[in-house]
Amino acid sequence: MADAAPPPRPKRPCPVCGKPAEREGPYRPFCSARCKQIDLGRWLAGDYAVPGEPLDPAEEDRS
């Protein structure tokens, strides 16, 4: 008996606008170049942050 192909995975929403995004493509996981640029701008502006311990002000001056 031949193995059945797995069912196709559902499309995930774009993390910026929520529209369905293609599973494969140049903008994955975003739906468009615009949403990709918006996300990059958010990273560069510091809107996203990785939580961590606050730095000691003296250590901050050394770097």
Results as ranks from 00 to 15, higher is better:
M1D: 06
A2E: 07
D3K: 10
A5S: 10
P6G: 07
P6C: 06
P7N: 08
P8I: 02
P8L: 02
R9F: 06
R9D: 13
R9W: 05
P10V: 02
K11Y: 06
K11V: 03
R12K: 15
R12D: 11
P13I: 06
P13H: 11
P13Q: 11
C14T: 03
P15C: 06
P15Q: 05
P15Y: 02
V16F: 05
V16A: 09
C17R: 13
G18D: 11
K19I: 01
K19R: 13
P20F: 05
E22W: 09
E22M: 08
R23V: 00
R23N: 08
E24A: 10
E24H: 13
P26Q: 08
Y27S: 07
R28C: 10
R28D: 06
R28F: 12
P29I: 04
P29Y: 03
F30W: 01
C31L: 01
C31G: 01
S32L: 06
A33N: 12
A33G: 14
R34P: 11
C35W: 01
C35S: 02
Q37N: 15
Q37S: 15
I38L: 12
I38D: 14
I38M: 13
G41Q: 11
G41N: 15
R42P: 04
W43N: 09
L44W: 12
A45E: 15
D47N: 14
D47H: 15
Y48L: 06
A49W: 04
A49N: 07
A49R: 11
V50C: 14
V50H: 09
V50Y: 10
V50G: 07
P51C: 04
P51G: 04
G52Q: 05
G52K: 05
G52A: 06
G52D: 05
E53A: 14
E53T: 11
P54Y: 03
P54W: 01
L55A: 15
L55I: 14
D56I: 01
A58F: 09
A58E: 15
E60K: 05
E60I: 04
D61W: 02
D61A: 13
D61P: 00
R62N: 03
R62S: 10
S63D: 12
S63R: 12
S63Y: 13
